[in-house]
Amino acid sequence: MSRRSLFLLAATLVVLHFTIIVFMLSPLHGSRRTFYTSGYHHRYSMRGAPSVAWCKDLHFKPPGPVVALISHPGSGNTWLRYLLQQVTGVMTGSIYMDYGLRTHGFPAENVTDGTVLVVKTHEAPPVDSDKFQAAVLLIRHPKDAILAEYNRLHKGHIGTAPKSAFKRKSHEHRMTDWVKFVSYQLTAWESLHELWLTRFPGRILVVLYDTLVRDTGPSLQRILDFLNHTVTKDDMSCALANREGIYRRRKKLQDFDPFTADMYQALDRAHGRVRDLVANYSRKHNLTQTRLENVAPLK
Rank of each mutant, 00 (worst) to 15 (best):
S71K: 01
P73F: 00
S71L: 00
M97V: 13
Y96S: 09
L69W: 06
G93N: 03
E109F: 07
Y99F: 13
G76K: 07
G64Q: 15
L80R: 09
A68L: 10
V111G: 08
V111T: 04
I70Q: 10
T88E: 02
P62A: 08
R81T: 07
R102A: 14
G100V: 06
Y96V: 03
Q85V: 03
Y96G: 05
G74Y: 13
L69V: 14
D98Q: 04
M97E: 14
P62R: 10
I95V: 15
T92K: 02
G89C: 03
G74I: 14
I70A: 02
L84Q: 08
G93P: 07
H104A: 11
T103R: 08
Q86L: 04
Q85A: 02
T78K: 02
I95F: 08
L83C: 08
P63C: 13
G89L: 11
Y96E: 06
P62Q: 09
H72E: 13
Q85I: 01
G93M: 10
L83P: 06
W79I: 08
G105T: 09
P63N: 12
L69T: 10
P65L: 09
G100E: 12
V87T: 12
G64T: 15
T92M: 08
G93Q: 01
V66C: 11
V66D: 11
M91H: 11
Y96I: 02
Y99D: 09
G76F: 14
M91W: 12
T78M: 08
Y82C: 12
R81W: 11
A108T: 06
I95L: 11
G89A: 11
V111N: 12
L84A: 04
N110G: 07
G64W: 07
G105I: 02
P65S: 15
T78F: 06
G105Q: 02
H104D: 15
F106Q: 01
P63S: 14
Y82R: 06
D98K: 01
N110I: 04
L69S: 11
E109N: 01
V66P: 05
G93H: 00
S94Y: 04
V111C: 10
R102F: 11
G74E: 13
P63L: 06
P62G: 05
A68C: 14
G74Q: 09
V67M: 08
G105K: 04
A68M: 10
L80F: 10
P73K: 02
G105R: 02
Y82K: 04
V90R: 12
V87R: 03
V67A: 01
A68Y: 06
G93C: 05
Q85F: 00
M97S: 15
A108D: 00
V87D: 01
T92C: 07
I95R: 09
M91D: 12
Y82I: 11
T92S: 10
Q85T: 08
T92L: 05
L83M: 11
Y82F: 15
Y96F: 13
I70F: 05
T92E: 04
L84K: 02
Q86H: 05
L80D: 05
V90T: 13
H72K: 05
W79K: 01
G64A: 15
L101N: 06
Y99W: 14
T88M: 03
R81H: 09
Y82L: 05
V66Y: 06
I70C: 07
T92R: 04
